[in-house]
């Protein structure tokens, strides 16, 4: 049996108690669904002296509001609930799709949105058992002093692998954190740092309590497209989320973000600016998609080749944009160029 290390399991009854326990127990970690944390801890990818359960707190999974008022989601809501929730079926569909695309039905029943936003960035040299890593040689992220992917690199390039993170950025979501120093609310993008190890700005004692999706001015459409080897199981090796607000058939604003192409979710909103004010044609979408893959710089540290993941970035941006603009997603020019390849 692959077992967890010896640790304490603490069950606070309120968020205030949870943050206090975290402050009092250095090295302790919060656990929600445990679907990211437990496998990683079994492989000793990090150490934890204690786990502080967020699963017996009251009222952590409430989903409130609608598209016209904005939606607030308790961080403990499960991916499965969110994938099926009507509040995420209309304008906020990208987040519903992202949650529904995570792994298996089992993992979605257990995994939460809060935990999904904080998935530990992944790497082929890191998401391995202790004995595997010992045999190959430890790396910067745990127990070692070099990066095995980019040997001269002073930093870790582990890959941000959350499906919901790019959707949260595209939907302009905000996140509420509660810690010893009080409550703060920040833009989803500000939750992340471009670093494979210190990947979040969240402090150790802070609990994510809620995710807020702001109401859009006018009509909004959104979409999430995900590349992976096995659709029934796998983490994204590329995720594209876009959200478009409309003004009588013309684009008022377009936002977008990429997942799994760097150590944080990458904002591509500025690359979508040429859409603004237009009634997007298929040609324009292709043109925009072709340029918007610029910030995608995958390295050879996750599944499939990084050349392919780079090549597919513009294809998936095209699909997501076509989807959000009401065109058949798979009928674009960039898709035609890779036809016969992986979908």
């Amino acid at each position: 049996m692959l077992r967890l290390p010896r640790l304490d399991y603490l069950r606070p009854r309120s968020i205030a108690e949870a943050t206090e326990l975290a402050a009092k127990n250095p090295g302790a970690m919060f656990i929600a669904g445990g679907t990211d944390l437990v496998p990683n801890l079994k492989r000793r990818q990090f150490d934890a002296t204690a786990l502080i359960s967020l699963n017996v707190l009251p009222d952590t999974r409430r989903i409130e509001g609608d598209a016209s008022r904005g939606v607030t989601i308790g961080a403990g809501a499960t991916l499965d609930e969110l994938a099926q929730h009507e509040a995420l079926a209309g304008p906020f569909r990208a987040l519903g799709q992202a949650c529904g695309s995570v792994s298996t039905p089992q993992v979605r029943t257990m995994g939460t949105l809060g935990g999904n936003l904080l998935v530990d960035p992944r790497c082929n040299y890191y998401n391995q058992t202790y004995s595997w890593r010992k045999a190959v040689g430890f790396c910067l992220k745990k127990d070692g002093d070099i990066c095995l992917v980019a040997r001269s690199s002073p930093r870790c390039w582990a890959v941000s692998s959350s499906d919901s993170a790019p959707a949260a950025l595209a939907l302009n979501a905000e996140v509420t954190l509660q810690g010893m120093e009080g409550t703060r609310r920040l833009a989803a993008a500000a939750l992340y740092r471009d670093d494979g190890i210190a990947y979040t700005t969240k402090r150790a004692d802070e609990v994510i309590t809620a995710v807020h999706l702001p109401a859009s001015r006018g009509r909004m459409t959104s979409a999430y497209w995900k590349l992976r080897r096995r659709p029934a199981f796998d983490f994204p090796i590329l995720g594209v989320a876009v959200a478009i607000t409309w003004d009588e058939g013309a684009v008022r604003a377009a936002r977008g973000a990429l997942g799994a192409v760097g150590s944080h979710p990458v904002d591509i909103t500025s690359f979508l600016a040429p859409l603004q004010g237009t009634r997007p044609t298929e040609d324009l979408i292709t043109e925009v998609a072709q340029a918007a893959d610029k910030p995608s710089r995958p390295l050879d540290n996750t599944d499939l080749s990084h050349y392919w993941r780079k090549r597919m970035t513009k294809v998936y941006i095209e699909r997501a944009l076509r989807d959000a603009c009401g065109f058949e997603p798979l009928a674009g020019r960039l898709t035609a160029q890779v036809r016969g390849g992986a979908r």
Binding site: R11, P39, Q106, M110
Partner: peptide, 10 residues
């Protein structure tokens, strides 16, 4: 549910 990831105390 996946019993290999679930914590009994919860």
């Amino acid at each position: 549910y996946l019993s290999c990831l679930a914590m009994p105390l919860d």
